[in-house]
Amino acid sequence: MLDRYGIVALFAVVAALFPAIALAMAWIIRPKKPNQSKLTTYECGLEFEDFPEAAQNVWVQFRVQYYIYALIFVVFDIEVVFLYPWAVAYNALGLFALVEMAIFLAILVVALAYAWRKGLLEWI
């Protein structure tokens, strides 16, 4: 059982080493001439020089809208977990299972349509 997971372990080791080696290489070969602008925190789409308090304190309260997206994501994540065994056993199951999965997906599309209709997929 376990010998087939050697490649997964190897993948995990490489994944852990990859960023470490990349950062170490950059640290070794880069010239070190820091100044104020280079040392500020960088985040895409934000200029921290304009918002000094944002650079110092990143423990800010998030908007509730992120949470709605996360919850909708959980629903569809669970849907994928059910799709996976269905797809693997598809040849053995036949038309009946196809109809059943269509019903399953249709019920969840109702949920998505409701969220869409209520305007929750728009960023306010």
Binding site: I78, F104, A115
Partner: peptide, 10 residues
């Protein structure tokens, strides 16, 4: 399960 997920989302 799908009904449960629907209720949760609504």
């Amino acid at each position: 399960t799908s009904l449960l997920l629907l209720v949760a989302m609504v």
